[in-house]
């Protein structure tokens, strides 16, 4: 009996003990979390800077009947926006964002006019370019229901838009020869509610946003150059997204987005210059987390819509967390 107990104890001595262990996360680990594993707001004291490049050309559009059409006349347009985002975690649940962008828009049109009576041909080339600082945004994001394991989080975001971009056409030479405005020329206030749940390696989220546009004044007709009071239609936006970790540092993102913008008004009357519009889009993305760097690319593809561009929007993103 004694020998058996000794053998048993010896066996126990050589055995490995397994127990539940908890990995300690240090701040440097927290700064390397992916868009799936990171919390919905930055940790207290964390600062993140980001660059964003948007690019879209004008080739097709959804008309007022919702039919996808090519632009028929000889016109070519492109729009690039180089955005900068600065984000700071005031507390573990409250984050402040400052967003601004540099715009580069181009629109070129050519028309050849032939007059057989006088045997003359006039070729008119209109080149309109808009370069400069666009509108800026200040946002506060708060975790209303903090994220817990296997439970969803709910966060609210209040975003104010400041018309820092030039709202009027500049350098006007003629009706069709001028520099394009790069800003909307109006203040706006938006409220966003979003919910997210993580079931590693997936995360699912949904959001609702409503943006109220205040009235402003700007030039709509370059001939008279008179500033007119206007109000953009209010914007409702909603979306669902689901992300998946392809490996530990690459995330495939998917989002379905819907927005509806009401008809705008000029001098308190509905105007065809600011028509009501809506779009349903799908946006796949790939996001690479390389230590504290985050690089991403996505394509927003308009699937259905009315009075909106039908060309894909390409987005490149780079972020670094300090």
């Amino acid at each position: 009996m004694k020998r058996i107990i000794i053998i048993y104890l010896l066996l126990l001595l050589t055995s490995s003990a397994f127990s539940q262990t908890e990995k300690l996360l240090v701040p440097s680990d927290l700064k390397q979390q992916t868009i799936i594993t990171e919390p919905v707001t930055l940790h207290k004291g964390f600062f993140r800077a980001g660059l964003l490049l948007n690019y879209r050309v004008a080739d097709r559009y959804f008309d007022s009947s919702g039919v996808k059409q090519y632009y028929r006349n000889s016109t070519w347009g492109s729009k690039s926006a180089y955005g900068i985002t600065l984000q700071y975690g005031i507390t573990d649940r409250l984050q402040v964002d400052l967003i601004s962008e540099f715009m580069n828009t181009l629109q070129e049109t050519q028309n050849t006019e032939i007059d057989p009576g006088t045997n003359t041909t006039v070729v008119t080339v209109d080149k309109q370019r808009g370069i400069g600082l666009g509108d800026s945004h200040l946002a506060l994001k708060y975790q209303i229901i903090a994220e817990k394991e296997r439970k969803f989080s709910l966060s609210g975001r209040l975003k104010a838009t400041f018309p820092t971009g030039a709202k009027n056409p500049r350098n006007i030479k003629s009706e069709n020869q001028y520099d394009l405005p790069v800003g909307d020329g109006t203040y706006a206030l938006g409220l966003n509610l979003s919910a997210r749940i993580i079931t590693y390696p997936y995360s699912f989220s949904g959001y609702l946003t409503y943006t109220y546009n205040f009235t402003g004044e700007k030039i709509f007709i370059t001939v008279d150059q008179i500033e007119k009071q206007f109000k953009l239609g209010n914007l409702f936006e909603t979306g669902l997204s689901w992300n998946i970790h392809l490996n530990e540092w690459i995330v495939l993102g998917n989002e379905v987005n819907f927005y509806d913008e009401g008809e705008g008004q000029i001098e308190k009357a509905p105007s065809t210059l600011i028509p009501a519009s809506w779009a349903l889009s799908y946006e796949p993305s790939l996001i690479f987390q390389v230590y504290r760097f985050r690089l991403g690319e996505s394509v927003k593809i308009p699937v259905l819509g009315k009075n909106v561009p039908a060309d894909p929007l390409f987005v490149l993103m780079a972020q670094y967390i300090f």
Binding site: N73, S74, E113, I114
Partner: peptide
Amino acid sequence: GIREATITVVSTTLTSTDRVTVNKLTE
């Protein structure tokens, strides 16, 4: 879809000016 340059043919008479614009798209 490839667009060609838009051409407008102008016909001027004593009373009016008429314009026929031709857009061409090859999809």
